Each structure stands twice: as structure tokens, then as C-alpha cells.
Amino acid sequence: DTINITLPDGKTLTLTVTPEFTVKELAEEIARRLGLSPEDIKDTHNGKTLDPSLTLAEYGITPGSTITLEIK
């Protein structure tokens, strides 16, 4: 299953994830792909900052969802 990550420059990154991924694991994968530190990444969905300890499923993030990435 894939989700879309909207980057600060407007580009989109597509990642393969499972509903059990935590937001922290997602940030780590994004950081790895972009050459950043996971601590520099802030993920938001529907205007809410995502708690790193919760899973994508707990936020109702499903395949095809879009998450907005902010760099701290």
C-alpha cells in the first residue's frame, strides 16, 4: 500500500507502508530518503501534527492518503 508525502517544495514522494507503521517509522523512512534527520521532520494530516507513537491506522491514514511534510 502506498501513501503520498507532500514535500515543502510541492513535490510528492510516494512511500510503501502498512497501516501498522508508526508515525515515527514513517518519519525515519522519509528522513532516510531525503537525507535528513528524523527529528527534523514534522508530519501533518488534515491540519493536525501527528504523534510519533501512534500508527497510521490510528489516524485513519489509508492507501492513497496524503501527508504533508514540514521541515523543523
Rank of each mutant, 00 (worst) to 15 (best):
T2D: 05
I3D: 00
N4L: 11
I5E: 00
T6S: 13
T6C: 13
T6F: 12
T6K: 14
L7N: 01
L7R: 02
P8S: 12
D9M: 03
K11S: 13
K11G: 12
T12C: 09
T12Y: 10
T14W: 07
T14V: 14
L15V: 14
T16F: 11
T16S: 13
V17N: 01
V17S: 02
T18P: 06
P19F: 05
P19W: 05
P19T: 06
E20S: 12
F21K: 07
F21C: 10
F21Y: 13
F21Q: 12
V23L: 12
L26M: 07
E28T: 07
E28Y: 07
E29I: 09
E29K: 04
I30T: 02
I30D: 00
I30Y: 01
I30K: 00
A31V: 05
R32I: 09
R32Q: 09
R33P: 01
R33A: 12
L34D: 00
G35C: 08
G35S: 06
S37I: 11
S37W: 11
P38L: 14
P38Q: 07
E39V: 15
E39P: 14
E39W: 05
E39F: 15
D40Y: 15
D40W: 14
D40Q: 13
I41Q: 02
D43F: 15
T44L: 15
H45G: 10
H45R: 05
N46D: 14
N46I: 10
K48W: 10
K48R: 06
T49W: 15
T49A: 09
P52N: 09
S53T: 11
S53K: 09
E58G: 03
E58Q: 07
Y59L: 15
Y59S: 12
G60V: 01
G60A: 03
G60M: 03
I61N: 01
T62R: 07
T62G: 14
T62H: 13
T62S: 08
P63F: 04
P63W: 03
P63H: 10
P63E: 07
P63D: 11
G64M: 03
G64S: 03
T66I: 09
T66E: 08
I67C: 06
I67N: 01
T68D: 09
I71C: 07
I71R: 03
I71F: 12
K72E: 11
K72V: 11
